[in-house]
Design a protein around this nucleic acid. Structure first.
Length: 467
DNA sequence: TTTTGAGTTGTTCGA
DNA sequence: GTCGAACAACTCAAA
């Protein structure tokens, strides 16, 4: 009787799982395995919120497996060594996994291949790296032509998706350790983990928000974004399912505006693929600027200002509200990510890598490819980056995307009674208005740590100096 | 090889 | 208040 190991990494689901599908085709029995890899768990790019989401996701998956007569085997140690042991213990003759492309994942899988017969099946991307290239075979480094090329391929449709198997037969006598962490109370977590929760979130998004996404996604004060990123991060949702569902929404959109919104959301999924491809083809972006000349940029890197940014005490309400939400919930609105990233790199002139690391430590959805791409875009150091003179003004961004200050007040209670016309620039309140609002600048809420106009000029010179 | 058109998300200034 | 231009040149992708 042949046994196949299904090694889970970023594909925590039973439906539309190409590695599970390949394992089922290969073997009569399947051994689903998660390996607690110390090299990842001890990384400075990992944070507690993402880990507890992962543990909850593993519990949910184990539950789904048990309903089908199987279970999740969890081991701790070096993946190559553990897989070799598991192979001996179970008599498996093949290991299947969904391909993953970060530089670490690539090196790890190379080592694993020397120990066990590892076969990759499917991808964390909708269209995997290598499938979308320029006519000369080189990878794209500009989004728009990449996107056009992506759309020229046949998109995944719901009929293409693999169904979850009804039964999975699993060898009984293989040792497992406990899934770490405690079962979280649902009210503690803004993102309930697991494939069922992921599918529910997708269904909710498809009911309405996707048809208003074009405008709704930019409003900080409403929940207009998909909030699917944590699920896509761990593969609790199949990215192909997300794309297929978006295609269906596009086809059934009621009007032009709704169709445009579905299209805009599809573009976000394509951005996700784009940055997966960039990291796979240009692994140096993990530690350097995509455009090397920006490694010479004269960052200020003031540690006190970095701390103020991290803790949400810069004196710019929209920045501080977003940073406090990040620490509290492990999530931030996409628009807010751009605002705080622009502020860190362009107003404080702090190295984008510091921000990238902080995001990875706190985001539930923290993903090496997307996070790196987003930071390099904001810093102007990346592929297809924002021009360096595009510097967000935190006051006008606040007014535009949080006009009534609802988002700001939710996270900065000290600004509760500040009138709307000062909610994004409270330091300009006259003394009696400050007293009336119970918000003395410099006491109840910090004065701005930099003057935006001066900071902007300083940054323009620093970027111009890079040749 | 050369040429051409284009390039996510913004801000500021002056008419 | 609104509008268009400037911001800066460079690189990419394809014809």
């Amino acid at each position: 009787m042949s046994v196949a190991i299904w090694w889970l990494r970023r594909d925590l689901r039973l439906d539309d799982n190409p590695a599970l599908g390949a394992a089922l085709n290969h073997g009569k029995q399947i051994l689903p395995v998660w390996i607690l890899d110390p090299a990842l768990l001890d990384s400075p790019y990992v944070g507690e919120k993402r880990l507890s989401f992962l543990w909850a996701g593993l519990r949910a998956l184990d539950h789904d497996l048990r309903e089908r007569g199987s279970r999740l085997v969890v081991r701790r140690g070096d993946p190559a060594t553990e897989l070799r042991r598991l192979q001996t213990e179970s008599g498996a003759d093949a290991v299947f996994a969904v391909e993953d492309y970060s530089p670490y994942a690539y090196r790890r899988d190379q080592r694993v291949r020397q120990m066990v017969p590892l076969q990759v099946a499917g991808s964390t991307a909708i269209h995997p790296p290598g499938t979308i290239t320029k006519q000369d075979g080189d990878p794209y480094v500009v989004y728009s032509p990449f996107m056009r090329s992506w759309k020229a391929l046949r998109p995944p449709e719901e009929e293409d998706l693999l169904p979850a198997p009804d039964k999975i037969e699993t060898p009984v006598d293989v040792a497992s350790v406990e899934i770490p962490g405690k079962p979280a109370r649902p009210e503690d977590n803004p993102f309930p983990a697991g494939p069922a929760a992921a599918r529910a979130r997708l269904a909710t998004f498809l009911e309405q928000d996707i048809y208003q996404y074009d405008t709704g996604r930019n409003q900080l004060d409403i929940a207009g974004t998909s909030r699917l990123s944590p699920y896509l991060r761990f593969g609790m949702l199949s990215p192909r399912r997300a794309a297929a569902a978006t295609g269906r929404a596009w086809a059934s959109a009621a009007d032009k505006q709704a169709r445009k919104s579905a299209e805009t959301f599809l573009n976000e999924l394509i951005w996700r693929d784009f940055y997966i491809h960039i990291l796979a083809h240009f692994p140096h972006v993990r530690s350097s600027s995509f455009r090397r000349k920006y490694d010479d940029l004269a960052w200020e890197n003031n540690e006190d200002q970095f701390t103020a940014w991290c803790t949400g005490e810069t004196g710019y309400p929209v920045v501080d509200a977003a940073m406090r939400q990040l620490r509290a919930q492990g999530w931030m609105h996409n628009r807010a990510r751009m605002i705080v990233a622009s502020f860190l790199t362009k107003d404080l002139l702090i190295d984008w890598r510091w921000g990238e690391r902080w995001f990875m430590q706190h985001l539930v959805d923290g993903d090496p490819a997307a996070n790196n791409g987003g930071w390099q875009w904001a810093a102007g150091t990346g592929t297809d980056a924002a021009p360096y003179f595009r510097i967000f003004n935190p006051v006008s961004q606040g007014r535009k995307h949080d006009p009534d200050g609802e988002f700001v007040r939710r996270w900065l209670p000290e600004l509760q009674a500040v009138p709307n016309n000062f909610i994004h620039n409270p330091w300009e309140m006259p003394a009696d208005t400050q007293a009336g609002a119970g918000c003395i600048i410099g006491e109840d809420y910090p004065a701005p740590i930099v003057d935006h106009r001066e900071a902007r000029e300083r940054t323009l010179s620093a970027y111009k100096a890079v040749v």
